Computed example of a mutant assay.
Amino acid sequence: MKLQHNLAGLENLGKIDFQKRVFVVPWEERIFGIHVAMMALSNHLETDSLPNYSLSTVPTSFNSFWSWGHLRQGAEAMNPFDYFKFRYYEKWLGGISGFFIDEGYITEEELNTKTALYLKDGNLDNAPLPNKPEPAIDEQIIKYLREGDSPQRDVAVTPKFAVGDTIRVKDLPPGEHTRLPGNLRGKIGTIDVVYDAPYTYFFPTTDGLGKPMPVYNVKFAASELWGEMAEANNFYYNDLFETYLEKYEE
């Protein structure tokens, strides 16, 4: 992955702030809720999800494809200096705001005007949020939270690897978005689990994701990843799509 997603084993990064609260300020809860609502109203749910959903009776003007993958893609596209500067949910806010501008739901000028309104005098009470209850939207979001959108697919795909096989992780460029941790590229591991069903991904990526494929739990010796820094007899496990793996031959 890009620099900000490839920190494993790097030294001298400075003091780490172990934040124990999920939401530090109230607006973070709201941006989390917006993200969940966008996933629950994503237009792919009627045609390419398990289970399928019927959105035709849901009175929403949101007609876009949105998933965890899109959220992560937005974070990966950030300038590394900006990525380290902003808090976790600030990254979410930037990615979601940019998505709404790119999709044409709001212009940058309109967003700036609304932002100035809500920040006026530093008191949100001066600009209360609109209250427009839509029971059908609430029901759809609750249904989505309960039933989800499974990435498993019931298709016949034969795994290339078996438990105990030694593999090497491909050294692939990350492109716009990847699910391959950067510190695993080129590393040697052992197949520990072959999951029963193939998994798809939200959308195709330049490094091979998209179509349903086997997923493996791969076991790495800690010394393979961190060298002399690693403690003896320790191991690291990671779930990886098949497209990221190749057979290792000495």
Results as ranks from 00 to 15, higher is better:
residue 143 K to S: 13
residue 122 G to Y: 12
residue 140 Q to S: 11
residue 48 D to G: 04
residue 25 V to R: 14
residue 243 T to K: 05
residue 74 G to S: 10
residue 135 P to T: 15
residue 120 K to A: 15
residue 222 A to T: 08
residue 92 W to H: 15
residue 199 Y to M: 09
residue 15 K to G: 01
residue 156 A to K: 15
residue 56 S to F: 00
residue 181 P to T: 01
residue 185 R to M: 04
residue 51 P to H: 10
residue 72 R to D: 13
residue 88 Y to R: 11
residue 82 D to T: 12
residue 182 G to V: 01
residue 120 K to V: 09
residue 87 R to N: 10
residue 41 L to V: 10
residue 245 L to H: 04
residue 175 G to F: 01
residue 126 N to T: 11
residue 216 Y to A: 03
residue 39 M to N: 09
residue 52 N to P: 07
residue 16 I to V: 07
residue 87 R to T: 07
residue 77 A to Y: 08
residue 64 S to M: 08
residue 167 I to A: 02
residue 76 E to N: 10
residue 32 F to V: 04
residue 30 R to M: 12
residue 17 D to N: 14
residue 175 G to L: 03
residue 119 L to A: 10
residue 163 V to N: 04
residue 37 A to D: 08
residue 207 D to W: 00
residue 214 P to A: 05
residue 52 N to M: 13
residue 146 R to L: 12
residue 42 S to G: 12
residue 26 P to W: 06
residue 33 G to S: 15
residue 99 F to I: 06
residue 17 D to Y: 07
residue 3 L to D: 15
residue 190 T to N: 06
residue 198 P to A: 01
residue 9 G to M: 11
residue 155 V to Y: 07
residue 98 G to Q: 14
residue 103 E to Y: 09
residue 181 P to K: 06
residue 79 N to V: 14
residue 47 T to N: 11
residue 137 I to S: 09
residue 32 F to P: 00
residue 121 D to C: 07
residue 104 G to R: 08
residue 227 G to P: 10
residue 103 E to A: 10
residue 202 F to K: 00
residue 24 V to F: 15
residue 142 I to H: 06
residue 16 I to P: 00
residue 69 G to W: 00
residue 100 F to P: 13
residue 31 I to W: 02
residue 223 S to G: 10
residue 196 D to C: 02
residue 221 A to E: 12
residue 89 Y to E: 05
residue 205 T to L: 03
residue 127 A to Q: 11
residue 30 R to F: 14
residue 144 Y to E: 06
residue 107 T to E: 04
residue 105 Y to P: 11
residue 231 E to C: 07
